[in-house]
Amino acid sequence: MSPPSIGQRGLAVTGLRVRHRHGPEVVHGVDLQAHPGEVMGLVGPNGAGKTTVLKAMVGLLPSAGTITLDGQDLSQLSARERAHRVAYVPQRTALTAPLSVRSVVDLGRFAHRSSWSRPSAHDRAVVSQALEDANVADLAERPFSTLSGGERQRVLLARALATQAPVLLLDEPTSALDVRQVLLLHTILRTLAQRGSIIIAVLHDLAEVREHTDRAVLLQDGQVQYTGPTPEVVALEPVRAAYGVDLIERAGLAYRLPTGGGVA
């Protein structure tokens, strides 16, 4: 199956409601639109429902409302079909077994081949490319269980890249990364966006959101409070309303990758 063509409408979430199993509703009618080519930041104070919204979009939580990609309702798809369209990078993985990094990344090709067939040349090429892109090619033969937190997060990104899904959802992908790796990650995300992917990342650091995303959605108490171009959302008033702090615009420490790419 070839990846579906990316239309103009992108990813549209309408009236998303999520209720915890045998518990209260925690997301109360979230609407959002994400378009190919842009990086969207999902922000909000602790407990705002950022991760819940993201997981519902991946299909990990039962939800009400509709999630469509290019007009197609994702809830109508099987897990396999959905995996062709939406890739997910969790905040942390439950994987403890000594699976090699290459095997972990190869799991991203799960939905692309049948249960019996071995990886095709194309699968292997995609996996190698994903390892390169996520800057973990040198770790390929290492057991996943021996990696550091930052290395693991990059491997999870590589796995998501290997799915070749047009939508990439990331849950705090930079929480375990050092400054250099954060910059590398955003470079990768930017490149993907330029190739036409839809990127939505839950991010904690508002400065990072300001720096690296095009648009932002500010969630609070399971509802969208503000949405729009990032500079309008990560601004004095919305931040004060949601977090109860004053945003001070001032020059602080900033980082950039050395000219020439700097990808090791």
């Binding site: 897990a79 396999r80 249960s115």
Partner: peptide
């Protein structure tokens, strides 16, 4: 054995397995 790859995927946890297309 037809579930071998599914079980590999399951090593990463149910959520992740589902996200890459496994019918858990």
């Amino acid at each position: 054995m037809s579930w071998a790859r599914h079980l590999d995927a399951l090593l990463t946890g149910e959520d992740e397995a589902r996200s890459i297309g496994v019918d858990v």
